[in-house]
Design a protein around this nucleic acid. Structure first.
Lengths: 188, 188, 188, 188
DNA sequence: TGTTAAGCGAGACGGTACGTCGCGTCTTAAT
DNA sequence: ATTAAGACGCGACGTACCGTCTCGCTTAACA
């Protein structure tokens, strides 16, 4: 019966949050900053999100979704496609920092576990499908899929952590070649 | 003529910082908290460190150093040893969270870049040595060592991020087997 | 054709207001508190009363009315009766505080002036009648009735302000004796 | 050893409070308003005063002090002098409202009991002295001094509550004549 | 060995952000 | 068209921490 939460307020808050994070990084993000940037009242923000972090989660969520699940018939091609998508995803300004920041925050604060769910587990689904299909095809031996996901994704995460330099396409190809060989696919 | 900066004050501040981070995570870290925990005056802290984060860097630095560089004659054995050391390092209570948190904080705050240097780059040195030696021995092809480090370490980082469950020894062995095979070592 | 303002809503709001003021003082009174206590919607309250204070005025009004006007034939007896009534009125739990609080609120907020009208002026009517009759009877000289009301009622107000102790009957008698003598009635 | 609370901050806050109350009444008083008006930080205000009300108490205190204790040799003259002082005290703009407001607030909030102490009890001291001396001189019978204070002061309090009109000198004289006669002083 | 400048603890200072509460207005659906 | 329900923008609340500052007291290096 009562008025529903305003979709417009939500939209403005999300947009303001994304603007702030893109401009000043997650360090510049604060509820008061969103209030100033969006014109939405602080109370309204707290009606929509139980904390600033939840708003951040939602704003980030909108940036990281719709990962297509490729099916090119070969593990290598599929992994390459997903990896390229991931690399593109973190290539925007401040996105690498944001992702790492959010992973750290999520590890410490149970309230932010949803971030991990969204950014990590959900993102890994395409990879899970790809590997499962490769096993079914007999392209690779029947291995622990979860462990395999770590092997395939890990190098990109490590690369992201260890350097803020943009990741070149050749680098992606080289890493993919190594990891698919590790999983048991024969070289050409 | 004047008194030098007190080594004791520095020691107490570092110890208090480590206690706080271990107990409440980096979120619980603050200059005021260190003041309360250590009994060292705020003025003194700012005399020793230009900002709270610099103190954090120094305190963390002391926790992660002195990684032995193994030399067992085979890439697989060396990688396994370093990996086991890494897994042990993050197995203590709250250590996984702290590491992820610090990585996130370091990515965002340039002032904390030194943490990344200490925790990530410096930690990778043993791995760099191991791989370089394997190449020199002709055990694996001449590959980009930095990229190889990512391939070898990445799966453990991914595993650490994706689950808070303790990492079993068998898991470590399986991952190491995959990645060394990926780098070009022949199977048995 | 449209529905008239609901008498029931009004009743529930008034009752809730009286409960709140009796329990938590006027400080605990708020529109939102009345909404919670009464179940009446905020919109409805504003339809009935232009502001929260107007509701407060109405709720208080119902508590302080119908003061009987005694006529015992002597000023002293009449004043004593009215004074006893007043003392009883403020003897309930929290009533002293509520009266003082409302007087203060009324002095500051013009919107609440009506409270003063109800609680003070209207309450003084019996005293005005009594004194006027005493003058007509020739029991006391022709004095300014308004000023005389202050002289007769003031000591009880002062007593109420200066101490939260219950007012004993003997105290009332002593005060009444003094003030009626002051107005010109001869001692026995 | 630490820096003492700044006398200047205190002075600015008190002055701002008095300005605000004089200009917009006690309703316009708020911590945030004092922050804006005084330039003193909110945290500093809370360091000096545990609540906004305490600041108000102090600001008011400075307005109501130094009540001289007259000694003219006759009860009537002394009471008249004290009464005139009281009337002057509440004659400034907004002072009547402030006094009533504070009395009400003090009745409800134990934290503000100090206001009652300052404004009421302490203010009554001169009257206590006057009446005690009159009894010692034999000018009036040995009566309960506290009750007598209520009789002498009450009419002025009642007058203050019942009307916001300025109190004329003739009115004071008339009231004083009545109450001192009530206490047992013979007419001329 | 006495002087003295700087280090020290303690904590006040002006700020920013927090998350909550009450205000009075508004929008919605249901009666 | 009134109602219950409650979202809206607004502004105050009292707290935590920031980095700077002002205090006396203490102490180590120099004269």
């Amino acid at each position: 019966m009562p008025r529903p939460l305003s979709a417009e307020a939500r939209k403005k808050a999300i947009a303001a949050t994304q603007t702030i994070v893109a401009t000043h990084g997650t360090a510049g993000f604060s509820i008061d900053a969103v209030v100033r940037e969006s014109g939405v009242a602080k109370t309204t923000l707290y009606r929509h999100w139980s904390s600033g972090n939840q708003l951040l989660v939602d704003a980030i969520d909108e940036l990281f979704h719709d990962f297509p699940i490729p099916d090119n018939g070969s593990l290598r091609a599929d992994v390459l496609e997903v990896s390229m998508t991931f690399v593109e995803m973190i290539s925007g300004p401040g996105l690498r920092e944001m992702v790492l920041d959010l992973i750290g925050a999520a590890a410490c604060d149970p309230e932010l576990a949803a971030i991990e769910e969204t950014m990590i587990q959900q993102r890994a689904e395409p990879m899970r499908d790809i590997i499962t299909r490769a096993i079914e095809r007999g392209e690779i031996p029947a291995i622990d899929v979860d462990a395999a996901i770590n092997v395939v994704e890990g190098p990109f995460i490590a690369r992201m952590i260890r350097s803020s330099k943009p990741i070149e396409q050749a680098e992606v190809v080289a890493i993919v070649d190594w990891v698919v060989r590790g999983l048991g696919v024969k070289d050409d």
